[in-house]
């Protein structure tokens, strides 16, 4: 049976006067694909960033596989290598080739020899359809291609869960599909995923669970069929209407 892999208990975070997370409690099961939607500033990205501590939470607790997420560097680095993250702005390392972007973490953290790391990276690049671009630099690639490389880079550490922070929001419309296809493929392979996105089609089709964030709280949490068929309240109905459900 699936078990709770990431557990959030009363997670709070404020930036100055503004409280972005107002006591969020939820669990993410192994193998589950969770899509988080909500207006910008509702705290959905902050929760994602709190899970791998790019944005430390003020109070409450987050555990990954039973281990508390804290500032302890050893534990944190181990947790981060097991939690892959994909960013809105791709954030590929501009001074490295595609191949080096993917092999950096395994070579440094696992001390994988370069040849073995390269072989493994080529398999990952093939999986995201980027094997022909291994020796190019990020600036030579389109946004969609960069994001696919970023997914391969995150997969290189063989993470147990993947976090996607609006992975298609910075892309031209015609490139959105190629990235969503890769994510769909990942989900089909059983990857645990938490995806912050505005792609309602993806949520309907791939998600096991859709979560709606509103003003720092989880306003609604339901399987996609139920979530979209009868929105829990007016705000959700209006939001789905606006982003084109």
């Amino acid at each position: 049976m699936s078990k709770a892999y990431i557990v959030c208990r009363d997670v709070r975070k404020r930036f100055g006067e503004h409280e972005v997370l107002k006591g969020v409690s939820t669990e993410f099961q192994t193998g589950q694909v969770t899509v988080i939607i909500g207006a910008s500033g509702s705290g959905k990205s902050t929760l994602l960033r709190a899970i791998n501590r790019l944005e430390p939470h003020d109070s409450g607790s987050i555990t990954i596989d039973g281990v508390e997420v804290s500032d302890d560097q050893r534990t944190l680095q181990k947790q981060r290598s097991e939690v892959g993250m994909v960013f809105q702005q791709f954030n590929l390392f501009g001074h490295m080739s595609v191949l080096d972007n993917v092999t950096l973490a395994p070579r440094r953290i696992r001390r994988t020899p370069r040849t073995a790391a390269n072989e493994q990276a080529m398999l990952l690049l093939k999986r995201v359809g980027m094997q022909d671009h291994a020796h190019k630099y990020p600036w030579q690639l389109s946004g969609g291609q960069q994001q696919r490389v970023a997914i391969a880079r995150a997969l290189a550490m063989q993470p147990k869960v993947m976090l996607f922070d609006e992975p298609t929001s910075a892309l031209d419309p015609e490139m959105v599909q190629e990235v969503l296809d890769v994510m769909r493929e990942l989900a089909r392979g059983g990857m645990t995923m938490i995806v912050v996105t505005h792609e309602m089609g993806f949520a309907r089709e791939v998600a096991d669970r859709v979560m709606f964030f509103d003003q720092g709280c989880i306003a609604h949490d339901a399987p996609p069929a139920e979530f979209f068929a009868n929105p829990a309240n007016e705000r959700i109905r209006a939001f789905i209407g606006r982003v084109g459900g």
């Binding site: 790019l54 680095q77 981060r80 290598s81 950096l104 953290i109 970023a150 880079r153």
Partner: peptide
């Protein structure tokens, strides 16, 4: 850019590697 450090840290790289492999080469350039 801040995103470079974040991406490196999110991969699980330690402070030393984040600096030597990602930040410094780009800063030096």
């Amino acid at each position: 850019p801040r995103g470079q450090t974040e991406a490196a840290r999110a991969l699980g790289l330690g402070h030393g590697h984040v600096f030597l492999d990602v930040v410094f080469p780009q800063a030096f350039k």
